[in-house]
Amino acid sequence: MTVRAPYRPPRDRLWFTRTRSATVFVLRELTSVFVAWSVVFLLLLADAVLSGTTREFAALAARPWMIALNVVALAATAFHAVTFLNLAPKATVVRLDGWRVPDWVIQGGNHSAWLVISGLIAYFVLRSS
């Protein structure tokens, strides 16, 4: 009597490419690496400011590979933020007096707040230069 192993179908390693929503989901999850890099970069900047080594940090940040990495990180972080904010209406149901607030209002509020806060940060950073 021969014992056979149970059948295991072959794995499709590119399963997420079949639908647009799955592809966007996987891309958003992968962009988390660049979001984490942005946090590390800002922590390195804060450490350089506190320890008085801003010239060394500026020299590191001015290297072409670092500029390229930060440009990619900026694009990935923007993609991550936009797709995350677009999912907010699915995760948060807001009701006012029994009436459900439409998805576009929640999305618009999130994107508007992001734009206003980014504008304020840019104003204060650029003003002090």
Rank of each mutant, 00 (worst) to 15 (best):
R11Q: 14
I106C: 07
V24C: 02
G109T: 15
M66E: 10
V24S: 03
W99C: 05
L50Q: 05
S21F: 07
F124C: 07
R100Y: 08
S118Q: 06
A91G: 10
R11M: 10
L14Y: 14
H80M: 06
P10C: 05
E56G: 15
T54R: 07
A76F: 04
M66K: 01
A36G: 03
T31D: 12
P10L: 10
W37F: 11
H111I: 13
L115I: 15
W37G: 00
L45Y: 14
L126M: 12
R11Y: 12
L85E: 03
H111A: 10
F16N: 03
W114Q: 09
R95W: 06
A5W: 07
V94S: 12
R4L: 13
A46E: 07
A81V: 15
F79W: 09
V82P: 00
V93S: 12
W99I: 12
L30K: 04
Y123D: 09
L44M: 01
I106D: 11
W37M: 02
T2V: 12
A91T: 08
A58P: 03
L42K: 00
L85H: 01
I117W: 08
A75E: 01
A46Q: 06
L96F: 11
V49C: 02
E56A: 15
D97C: 00
A36N: 06
V125S: 08
Y7S: 07
D97P: 00
A5I: 11
V105T: 14
V40W: 03
G119A: 11
L115M: 11
S32T: 11
L44T: 00
W15S: 10
A48C: 07
L120T: 07
R13W: 15
W37C: 01
W65P: 00
P64E: 06
N70H: 08
L69V: 14
H80L: 09
V3G: 00
F79D: 01
I106N: 02
Y7E: 07
P102S: 08
K90H: 14
T92K: 04
V72Y: 09
L115D: 04
A76K: 02
V125W: 11
L27Y: 09
E29M: 05
A91M: 11
V3M: 08
Q107S: 13
G109R: 09
L69M: 15
A62I: 06
F41D: 08
V71M: 06
S51T: 15
R8M: 08
E56I: 05
F79R: 01
E29W: 00
F57N: 03
A48F: 02
D103F: 06
A78I: 14
A22F: 03
R127W: 10
V82N: 01
V105P: 04
N86Q: 12
A113M: 14
I67W: 03
R18L: 09
R28L: 09
R18D: 12
L74E: 03
L44C: 00
L60S: 14
L74C: 10
L120E: 03
